[in-house]
């Protein structure tokens, strides 16, 4: 019982993942700045931001539905932290693993977007409403290629459990190379999930101020910010576990370090991608996802189906 609680609250649960999320935000921001030839923030900047936001006054718009408005950020935060618990971190096992957890992680990572939608919608601000409608519209575009490409990898491993996938690829060391198309598809789709350029349409500041977050302030905004940071870590961890399932050694510490490096590598790729492109329009984004990402995801599934027949 105590062990489970420790898992949930301390490591790899709430405390660890919050710190990891904020550090990931630092890495992202610093790298973004360095790529733009700027100095960038000091390492404690994300922590300082969160502490400042928590200390600030919380304003609930008088026309907003207070229950929904307050529940949405917590709901989102819980979902992303839970998603992280299922990724095999330091060993080819994870404390809460069960068959089918990959589907659950994928759906848990969908919840923040829906929570943002609910929060934005019930805050009744026009900008928040436009932003939340955009967030959901975008969800339908990137979610399909993301699911398809991640499940393609699971298809090859013949399992819907993250631990089993990792075990399968450990047994067949070089099989992960077949999934590289899927990796790039899901990396781009992850940009949409994390609302980063070129898919930061729901919170495009020059158009809709802060999108669904426009009316949020104080603690609730801090939760939302934390939620996006953790979502980045959880998403990167999922991608690392599914597409780079190697580097698990006897020593738990070494495997853990390797895993963290993999997550950092994926975050660095995200920063790089968001540095070199402009924001797309929502119609262009949907076009791009359905006309380019989905065919590639389908191709990945096809490759894996063929491989499954050949390699057996």
């Amino acid at each position: 019982m105590i062990k489970e609680l420790l898992y949930i609250l301390v490591f790899p649960g709430f405390l660890f993942v919050s710190i990891a999320g904020l550090l990931a935000e630092y890495v992202d921001r610093k790298l973004y700045a360095r790529l733009q030839n700027r100095i960038g923030p000091p390492w404690f900047q994300p922590f300082a931001d969160i502490i400042k936001l928590i200390a600030k006054e919380e304003v609930t718009p008088c026309q907003a539905n207070p229950r929904m408005f307050h529940a949405a950020p917590l709901f989102a935060l819980t979902a992303v932290i839970t998603a992280f618990l299922y990724t095999p971190l330091w060993h080819t096992s994870s404390p809460f693993s069960f068959n089918g957890d990959i589907i659950m992680v994928l759906y848990l990572l969908t919840i923040p977007t829906l929570a943002f939608f609910i929060g934005g919608w019930y805050s009744t601000s026009l900008f928040a409403r436009i932003g939340s409608v955009r967030a959901v519209t975008q969800l339908f575009a990137y979610e399909v290629p993301l699911f398809m490409s991640i499940l393609a990898s699971a298809l090859l491993a013949n399992s819907w459990s993250l631990v089993d996938i990792v075990l399968f690829y450990t047994r067949h060391p070089w099989y992960w190379c077949f999934n590289l198309i899927g990796f790039f598809v899901s990396l781009v789709a992850l940009l949409g999930k994390l609302e980063k350029t070129p898919f930061d349409i729901p919170e495009a500041e020059t158009e809709v101020v802060a999108g669904a977050f426009t009316e949020y302030s104080g603690k609730l905004l801090a939760f939302l910010r934390l939620c996006i940071d953790i979502e980045m870590v959880s998403g990167a961890a999922l991608l690392a576990a599914v597409f780079f399932p190697f580097g698990f050694f006897q020593s738990a510490f070494l495997s853990f370090v390797v895993f963290i490096l993999k997550i950092l590598g994926i975050i660095a790729l995200i920063s790089l991608l968001r540095t070199v492109v402009a924001r797309l329009r929502i119609d262009q984004m949907i076009d791009f996802c359905w006309k380019l990402l989905v065919p590639f995801a389908l191709l990945q599934i096809l490759i894996n189906l063929v491989l499954k027949g050949v390699l057996r």
Binding site: L35, Q36, N37, R38, I39, L273, V276, V277
Partner: peptide, 22 residues
């Protein structure tokens, strides 16, 4: 093509930042 600034951007990691700690 997309990512036209990629080279320039990657090069600036190794350059001194243009901003200063005022």
């Amino acid at each position: 093509r997309p990512g036209k600034m990629m080279q320039e951007v990657l090069r600036s990691i190794f350059k001194k930042p243009a901003t200063s700690k005022y």
